[in-house]
């Protein structure tokens, strides 16, 4: 590829495009986890009256159960879906065949895009 070639004529590396989009979604999921866990634990587990016993669920303080255990289970389900059904199986080497699917066998979320 010539160095003088304009950017609009070049095609962005599909691995870059897919990986960048996946990274943004993962960071968004991370923020959702935080937005659930931190306020929930703070509102339900901090500053509790000392003269009342802490409520428990299955022997775990309820604020930990709802603020950590439940989102943990949901985050694990999301991780599994993301890796098996959403993540594109991009070839990493130029000689690796382009299989165009996900680890679970579903079609990938999108193809590469032009850089403008």
């Amino acid at each position: 590829m010539s160095q003088t070639e304009s950017k609009s004529e070049k095609q962005a590396d599909p691995v870059l495009v897919h990986a960048r989009r996946e990274a943004i979604i993962i960071m968004a999921a991370f923020i959702v986890c935080m937005a659930w866990s931190v306020p929930w634990c703070y509102m339900h587990g901090y500053g509790l009256p000392a003269d009342e016993p802490v409520q428990t669920t299955l022997g775990i303080p309820s604020w930990i159960f709802s603020g950590v255990i439940v989102p943990w289970i949901l985050a694990s389900i999301f991780t599994t879906w993301f890796c098996m059904c959403y993540m594109a199986l991009d070839p990493l080497d130029e000689d690796e065949p382009d299989v165009h699917s996900t680890a679970g066998g579903a079609p990938p979320h999108d193809d590469g895009e032009e850089v403008t």
């Binding site: 996946e22 993962i26 587990g45 930990i64 950590v68 993301f82």
Partner: peptide, 21 residues
């Protein structure tokens, strides 16, 4: 458990944000 809470998403973030690229 709250201190370590972000391990709920730790594998996905630490592996999949940078791994492929």
């Amino acid at each position: 458990a709250f201190w370590i809470g972000s391990y709920m998403i730790f594998p996905l973030v630490t592996m999949a944000v940078l791994g492929k690229r």
